[in-house]
């Protein structure tokens, strides 16, 4: 199923629908350093898009701009056709429509796992506590963390924390799930349990944009791979194609370095 084309409904993947997310001409500088230099990107419903590229290529910044956690210098971002980069939109309401998982988990250490998961539902969507907890417990059960629901996050292993963070992000049924190098802070033996969960979510049709250094995983799970280089989308395409036949010299160099570094 890794080779499914964009819009291809075969091989068990739900067919890709309308554009959930569209980025046009996005620019962002930190001081005088340009980080994003005109990004165009479209993500359709049920699609899984992997952002790859060297450190500093702008993957994380792009995700943070999309979630309105970072101001942008130019360009537009659309979520289901709404221009969310318009300063007149309520950014809090927009953020509630997306799910974000961070590299460092960023669970709230002073509240229990269950409260972490239900926080957005209770405080933003105003779901009654009992209802929010029922939903959260069902999700935690599914990822094998039901027995940790009443624990504080620091009692969990890194992999468990990251799975809880993913549950927190999907608990409110976001329109798109954004994953920012979610396995980079994990010990190698804990990476699999987190990636398996992402794989499941993808198989269920969750729309996902993920910045990742896990090339094997990207090849396996992503419908499309986007290679960022120096703040522009240098090359993109179906995962199998891009990994097997990169067109650009810099993509080839990047992938070669990766194979040399990891698989060798």
């Amino acid at each position: 199923m890794s080779g499914a084309d964009v819009g291809d409904g075969a091989a068990g993947i739900p067919p890709h629908g309308d554009a959930v997310l569209r980025v046009e001409g996005l620019r962002k500088s930190f001081g005088t350093t340009p980080v994003l230099r005109g990004i165009d990107l479209e993500v359709r419903e049920h699609e899984v898009v992997a952002l790859i590229g060297a450190s500093g290529s702008g993957k994380s910044t792009l995700l943070r701009c999309i979630t309105l956690l970072e101001s942008i210098d130019d360009g537009q971002i659309f979520l289901r056709g709404d221009d969310i980069s318009d300063p007149r939109v309520d950014a809090d309401r927009v953020r509630a429509r997306m799910g974000v998982v961070f590299q460092q988990f960023n669970l709230f250490p002073h509240i229990r796992v269950i409260d972490n998961v239900t926080l957005a539902a209770r405080r933003v969507l105003r779901v009654p506590r009992a209802e929010a907890e029922a939903t959260a417990l069902a999700l935690l059960e599914r990822v094998g963390l039901a027995d940790k629901a009443r624990e504080y996050p620091d009692r969990l292993s890194g992999g468990q924390q990251q799975r809880a963070a993913i549950v927190r992000a999907v608990a409110t049924n976001p329109e798109v799930l954004l994953l920012d190098e979610i396995t980079s802070a994990l010990d190698p033996e804990l990476v699999a349990e987190v990636l398996d969960l992402v794989r499941e979510l993808a198989a269920e049709g969750t729309t996902i944009v993920m910045a990742t250094h896990e090339m094997e995983f990207a090849r396996d799970v992503a419908d499309r791979v986007v290679f960022l280089d120096a703040g522009v989308v240098l090359e993109q395409g179906p995962a199998a194609d891009l990994f097997a036949h990169p067109r650009e010299e810099r993509t080839r160099a990047f992938l070669a370095r990766f194979r040399g570094g990891r698989d060798a």
Partner: peptide, 12 residues
Amino acid sequence: SQRLAARSLGLS
């Protein structure tokens, strides 16, 4: 990052 995580959930 705690602030980022909270805002990303839609908290004001």
